[in-house]
C-alpha cells in the first residue's frame, strides 16, 4: 500500500442519514485511548502540527476525529489514510483539549483491523512475532556475524510461550475464523 495511486481518500460524498451510526462516538468514548473524543471542538491544532499532514494530500487528523464524532463508522474505518499516522504523538501532546489524538487514531485502526483492513506490513510483523518473538525476521547471516563482531549470542524467543499468552486475543481469533471459512 503506497500513497500514490492506491490510497483511498475518505469518501467526501454528501452524507446520507442512513450511513450514520449515532452511537459510534459513545462506543469510542468507552474504549481505552479514545475516552475523550467528545471533547474535540475542531480547533485544528492536531492537523497544523502534524508532520505527515504536511506532505500527505489526504491525511488530516482533525477530519478523522470529526468523521468519527459524526458516526461515519464505515467511511473512517475503510479509509487508507488512517494508516498514515507516524505515531509521533505531537498531536497528543499539543491538543488543548487533552484528547490523546494519536490514541484515538490507534483505536480506529484497531477497529479497522478487526474488520480485516490492515496494511500488509503489519500482517508480516505479527506473523514474525508469533514465529520468533521478533517483529522482523533476523537474517541468519546477522545472527552468525554477531560472534565476529564481539557481540553475545542473540537471545532466542519462546514462540510457544508467546502463543500461550496471546490465546484469546480478539484480532488473532478473527484471523483464524476467516482462514477456517476459506
Amino acid at each position: 500500500m503506497t500513497e500514490t495511486a492506491t490510497t483511498k481518500e475518505p469518501n467526501r460524498e454528501p452524507i446520507k442519514a442512513s450511513e450514520i451510526d449515532p452511537k459510534f462516538k459513545y462506543e469510542l468514548s468507552r474504549m481505552h485511548g479514545s475516552e475523550k473524543i467528545l471533547r474535540c471542538f475542531q480547533c485544528g491544532t492536531c492537523t497544523s502540527d502534524c508532520p505527515v499532514a504536511r506532505y500527505s494530500e489526504t491525511y488530516r487528523p482533525r477530519t478523522i476525529i470529526r468523521m468519527a464524532q459524526l458516526g461515519l463508522r464505515d467511511r473512517v474505518l475503510n479509509s487508507d489514510t488512517l494508516w498514515l499516522c507516524a505515531a509521533c504523538f505531537t498531536c497528543t501532546d499539543r491538543c488543548p483539549q487533552d484528547i490523546e489524538v494519536a490514541s484515538v487514531i490507534r483505536v480506529l485502526r484497531n477497529l479497522a483491523a478487526e474488520k480485516g483492513c490492515v496494511p500488509i506490513v503489519f500482517k508480516e510483523q505479527i506473523a514474525s512475532v508469533l514465529e520468533s518473538g521478533y517483529a522482523y525476521k533476523i537474517p541468519d547471516l546477522r545472527i552468525k556475524k554477531r560472534e565476529t563482531q564481539g557481540l553475545p549470542p542473540l537471545p532466542k524467543g519462546n514462540p510457544a510461550s508467546i502463543s500461550k499468552s496471546l490465546k484469546g486475543v480478539k484480532f488473532l481469533e478473527n484471523i483464524e475464523k476467516k482462514s477456517e471459512q476459506q
Binding site: R109, N110, A113, G133, P155, S161, V169, F171
Partner: peptide, 19 residues
C-alpha cells in the same frame, strides 16, 4: 542478557492494542 524476550509490542499496537 535478557532471555526469551519478545518484541516490545509497539509495532503491533496499530493492529491490536490488546496484543
Amino acid at each position: 542478557e535478557m532471555p526469551e524476550f519478545n518484541c516490545c509490542g509497539l509495532p503491533l499496537d496499530p493492529v491490536s492494542h490488546e496484543m
